[in-house]
Amino acid sequence: MSVRSREAAIIAGLLLVTAVFGLVLIPMGIREGYGSSGAGLSPRFMPEIATMGIAVALLFGLVKQLLSVETAAGAEAHPDGVVGHPMRAVIVIAICLFFSLVGFRMAGFYLGGVVMAASLTALLGEREILKVVVFPVLVLIVIYIVFEFGFQIRLPKSGLIASIPV
């Protein structure tokens, strides 16, 4: 796919998302109550203006893209001139979201944090087992000291461990 077609497809996709947001999500997510019909009183005032503005800017971008001169298609290049690896970033994002949604709740922040940091360190190519295990433990010890002793903040503890009837 050429650069121009790809850009145009992305903008069209964003326009579709904006349309769904403006026509479905705003009416669903913001109820207009009694007395909110006067000038400047509607709670939908700013979200609607912002959404319309985004749609207009995207339309402008789409027209500009369609009228622009075709440029050569190229690989997704890294600023340093090497080809990037977006898949690795996607896996890291998935791991982070998993721990924030499930891992920290189940294993607690400290145990979950060690597992998360260790798995990410291994994913990034560290093969020395000592570094993969010891470094995350050291990081979590520092966090424990700073938070629990320094700021008196209790980070989430393991629900799994707490549920064991001992």
């Binding site: 924030s100 920290f104 944090g113 998360m116 990410l120 995350p136 990081v139 979590l140 903040i153 980070l155």
Partner: peptide, 26 residues
């Protein structure tokens, strides 16, 4: 490769600390 995992865990703790909410981490 050692720094970035530490940053991600440290950032999670920082985001949680403000309101004591895992929702903020998410």
């Amino acid at each position: 490769r050692l720094l970035f995992p530490a940053v991600l865990v440290f950032a999670s703790a920082g985001a949680y600390a403000m309101r004591g909410s895992l929702f903020d981490v998410q």
